[in-house]
Design a binder for these strands. Sequence first.
DNA 1: ACATATTGTGACCAAATGGTCGTATCTGTC
DNA 2: GACAGATACGACCATTTGGTCACAATATGT
Lengths: 215, 215
Amino acid sequence: MLDENITAELAERGIVTDTFRRLAPDKKELIYRAAIGLFGKFGYDGLSVDQLCREAAISKGSFFQYFPSKSHLLEFTVLMFDDFLTKWMAELKGNETAVLARERLLYLYQALLVNSKLHPDQERFFLFVTRGLEHAAVRLEGIDLERHFNEYIAEIIKRGEETGEIRGDFDVELTAHLTSLIIEGLIRRRYLVGRLPRGETGEYLISFLFDGIKA
Amino acid sequence: MLDENITAELAERGIVTDTFRRLAPDKKELIYRAAIGLFGKFGYDGLSVDQLCREAAISKGSFFQYFPSKSHLLEFTVLMFDDFLTKWMAELKGNETAVLARERLLYLYQALLVNSKLHPDQERFFLFVTRGLEHAAVRLEGIDLERHFNEYIAEIIKRGEETGEIRGDFDVELTAHLTSLIIEGLIRRRYLVGRLPRGETGEYLISFLFDGIKA
DNA sequence: ACATATTGTGACCAAATGGTCGTATCTGTC
DNA sequence: GACAGATACGACCATTTGGTCACAATATGT
């Protein structure tokens, strides 16, 4: 999961130090996992560096030899996760066999929510970055984790329009945005309530999206 | 806006002190407004009591004569806002003239997003409570600001089903939930981007919801 | 085996935090 | 205007915070 090339690039950009880059991969992985779990659970201000160090089994002195500051740890974690999402989406696209827009949406839904590769910690971290971070003391510019889903969905909608499956009088971007909102809402619902609505495979949701609620 | 009866009830429940209850209404209002604005902007952990006191023009000593703790201030603010939403929804229902589900949804959309009574600070506070609070150090049990919208929408959907305007094979609760998600997403979008998509009156959204995206 | 460079460590620091408390000021009553 | 009770105040406190630093441990090269 943890790619050495990325660590090198992040060191280049000053988000992590060179010392961190040289660190053993499993140690880096441990820190990354601890950060994902703890940021998601406690938020940015709610997580102290001491707590992170305890969880990742490193000393505070070491921490600041790896990261210039606490906010750099967050940036590191978000960028790593962003990269993970990029690869995941690419993999999904690669494995896609459906052709029709309706089936493609269903496939995506199932891949994201039914057979999801995401660990609960990752889901919670995703929600934290996309929503909770808005009300935290730190700001991360130019990062949009939702774009992975938005772009995928927008592509499906657009192609569906071209092939005549989907009405052409709709605003593609907004439609994709609204669809993403729904999927994100379902992620939250599963993480909060512990289960998907009606526990099924997505037929219902796609029905809602695709056929509308009109009689 | 600020109702004396509520202050009395909150004092009864120990959320604010008796001293606060006796305070001049405009002073209470000032504290409430400062809290709405600052919690929304900085989150729970990001806002210090000192900062709140500065904004509300009271001393720290006074603050702790009004509220048992910082978390009680949050609870006070949320409950006041909750009450505001209750009254607003009741007012909307009272003024409603539309009968058909489609028109009722459009009316609600316009009331919430086009002619909204909500101050930007209130919108941001709403988003903070419904999303950002999940990742803060403090927890508020049993409070669900979204229920106001959910219940209204659920009622529209349900009645629409009964009159045959809306397909009967849908899960009312989930449909209402998804509809709420979209509306909440639009609130966020307006507050972040500063405008509604396509800047129109909601016809497009209702179209999306009501007619579906199928060709 | 030694010298040197790199990495690990936790006591320590200044600043900020939520919360307290003794005192000053106000308000109403006589 | 004197008294008493309530209210306002900000210096103060213990704790926690992000971050530093001097030193210990370990790796590395020869």
